[in-house]
């Protein structure tokens, strides 16, 4: 590097120390706190807390919600990225902005909108009650709220990626006689697989960890409509701290795993 473009070594050391210190304080400490509190009373209590029936039900529910929401948003994300990256049309930037909308909406509002639509006093409330269909306070509501909140994740990863990759590969495939679907599966998909994987990972992490939106539509019925984050809250409000942190530690593990995978993908 050019002589004179470097800061004096002391300044450099201070800056690094400052950055590392900040990250350690703000990020590492909370991470450590979760693990510390979860295992405070030892392995056995941790295991008991994590395998307790309500906890198990919350794990199953979380997985189920994610298993529905993530594929749906993945299909959407791929479709949106295809339309936006491979074609030119008016209103493209507005479309991208609309897709990113859920990011700027408070999670509570995200849940609220579905209560307003499907709750007892909502637009469709009476109709649903007449037909004995439960959306709010039941699985469909949880899925809807989660889908809303994680809506942009896959699209957001793929749009810049596919835009940067351009159209030439696909056009080449077409001139060689491939159909649209063949082009997509054999040419586009392999090109985007890491971006897609990362987008799905983030979408999944958020889907499993979503709290605010799900809290509003859930009804907090233990064993039935509590996802893991909601179960954590319930246990915490009961002053059952060890159990709360035990379930939280599972989610933390997922987060760390997601980060590690992301790092590996780069």
């Amino acid at each position: 590097m050019t002589a004179g473009l470097r800061e004096p070594p002391l300044v450099k050391a201070l800056l690094i120390a400052g950055a590392v210190g900040y990250v350690a304080l703000m990020l590492l400490l909370p991470l450590g706190a979760v693990l510390d509190e979860a295992f405070k009373k030892g392995w056995q209590l941790w295991l008991a807390a994590v395998t307790e029936p309500d906890a198990r039900a919350s794990i199953k529910l979380t997985l189920l919600v994610a298993a529905i929401a993530v594929p749906l948003n993945t299909v959407f994300g791929v479709a949106a990225a295809w339309a936006i990256a491979k074609f030119d049309f008016r209103g493209k930037t507005s479309l991208v902005a609309l897709i990113e909308l859920p990011f700027s909406v408070s999670p509570v509002v995200s849940g609220l909108v579905f209560v307003l639509l499907f709750g007892a006093q909502g637009w469709f409330g009476p109709w649903l009650q007449d037909h004995d269909i439960g959306i709010i306070f039941a699985l469909p509501g949880l899925v809807l709220a989660t889908v809303f909140v994680t809506f942009p994740f896959v699209a957001r990863q793929l749009i810049p990626l596919m835009s940067a990759q351009g159209r030439t590969d696909e056009e080449a495939a077409l001139t060689l006689g491939a159909s649209g679907w063949q082009t997509f599966w054999r040419v586009t998909l392999p090109n985007i697989r890491f971006g897609l994987l990362y987008g799905v990972l983030l979408c999944n992490a958020r889907a499993m960890g979503e709290f605010g939106a799900v809290s509003v539509v859930s009804g907090h019925i233990r064993g039935e409509t509590n996802t893991m984050p909601l179960q954590v809250e319930a246990l915490y409000n009961d002053y059952d701290f060890v159990a709360a942190f035990a379930v939280a530690s599972l989610l933390t593990l997922l987060a760390v795993f997601t980060l590690a995978l992301k790092s590996a993908l780069e």
Partner: peptide, 11 residues
């Protein structure tokens, strides 16, 4: 980004 908000809250 990756950590659930409730977990961050109690931590």
């Amino acid at each position: 980004f990756a950590l659930p908000t409730a977990v961050a809250g109690i931590a």
